[in-house]
């Protein structure tokens, strides 16, 4: 059954890839294409697509990879305003890219980036011409990945999957504001671009962990940066050029989300959101993520994060004039629900 699903999806992507290639060659040539692309990206900078569908789960509540793939397709089409997801992937990635998929597997089973989503992202990248061997599924440590169910794979001719401990950290110290860190060599040396794939969840110290906080898994000393609710450290980490410049897309795995008790997996406080948050602006994504968690907390009769003394103030810091990483005003974020 699993294989059948995979075949269906590949066939679908194969046809997508062919159609998109034709569009790219004839539709947006040369400078005009670049100009249009810039306009499109500018217009989409503070847009967040929330894609939800209960069909991502079967009757036993298990994720259906095909449906997760379709959900991602819908989100990508909406985000980049194409009627075919492969065109969206081609707008963002090409065959020269080496793409790191920064997952979040700290909480182990139950609340880590789901492999069905990662698989869909891999297929999307392949539809844009990125070779499988140029894709690295990546997190803090091999052990974290393994605990979440991923298999460590370092063969240079295949899809790769490993942690920072596999290749170490930069000797160079990267600094911004209060932060001074060595960065993962996966980020610095191996990848030309990153897709950030965090989890939507509550955080016992920083309030919320989503797009911005996920890059604590790229630095060698995240333990030093949880004081003061992670503020301004989380924003500062995201200002490091290797992170800021290489991040091309954020896809939040909100298939299962957690509104209390994070970052570890606490099943009593998770819910099946059955969705993805997709966008370019990490601050906007975090703002929307925070809003979703607050609403769920209210629904469950829990105090707001501010009342719980862990309001995620780092999000506003990320938007301030020293950082300008994005928009934290819900009124100015275009939220498309698909």
């Amino acid at each position: 059954m699993v294989d059948e699903r995979k075949i269906k999806r590949r066939k679908f992507l194969k046809s997508s890839f062919q159609a998109a290639g034709g569009f790219y060659l004839t539709g947006l040539p040369g400078c005009q294409a670049e100009s249009n692309q810039n306009k499109a990206e500018e217009a989409n900078q503070s847009k967040v697509v929330i894609a939800q569908n209960k069909l991502v789960r079967d009757k036993n509540k298990k994720l259906n990879g095909d449906q997760v793939g379709k959900l991602l397709d819908n989100a990508m089409e909406n985000l980049l305003q194409f009627n075919h997801s492969s065109k969206a992937w081609q707008r963002l990635f090409n065959k020269n890219d080496v793409v790191g998929i920064k997952v979040n597997c700290l909480a182990g089973r139950g609340l880590s980036t789901n492999y069905e989503l990662v698989q869909a992202i891999v297929e999307g990248l392949k539809s844009a011409g990125v070779a499988e061997k140029n894709i690295i599924i990546w997190d803090r440590a091999n052990r974290d990945l393994e605990k979440a169910g991923y298999k460590i794979q370092t063969n240079r001719n295949r899809l790769k999957c490993y942690g920072n401990d596999q290749v170490g950290y930069s000797r160079k110290l990267y600094e911004f504001g209060e932060v001074g860190s060595s960065l993962s060599n996966i980020l610095v040396r191996q990848c030309t671009t990153i897709i950030n794939v965090p989890i939507l969840k509550d955080h016992g110290i920083c309030g919320v962990t989503n797009a911005l906080k996920n890059y604590f898994g790229a630095i060698h000393n995240p333990n030093k940066y949880h004081d003061n609710l992670g503020d301004p450290f989380i924003a500062d980490v995201n200002m490091l050029p290797e992170i800021r410049n290489k991040t091309r897309l954020t896809i939040t795995d909100a298939l299962t989300a957690q509104y209390e008790g994070g970052p570890p997996f606490m099943p009593q406080w998770t819910w099946q959101f059955n969705g993805l948050l997709v966008g370019f602006d990490p601050v906007a994504l975090d703002t929307v993520a925070w809003d979703i968690i607050e609403k769920k907390r209210k629904e469950k009769g829990l105090p707001s994060l501010k009342q719980a003394n862990r309001e995620p103030t780092y999000i506003a810091t990320a938007a301030d004039s020293n950082h300008r990483l994005g928009c934290n005003d819900l009124n100015n974020i275009k939220i498309d629900e698909v």
């Binding site: 699993v2 995979k6 590949r10 089973r109 492999y115 990662v118 698989q119 891999v122 297929e123 392949k126 499988e132 599924i137 393994e146 605990k147 169910g149 991923y150 298999k151 460590i152 794979q153 295949r158 899809l159 999957c161």
Partner: peptide, 13 residues
Amino acid sequence: MCGAGAVLLSSLG
């Protein structure tokens, strides 16, 4: 599940 293109999965204890 571990064919080319598939995300690599390991069995879990």
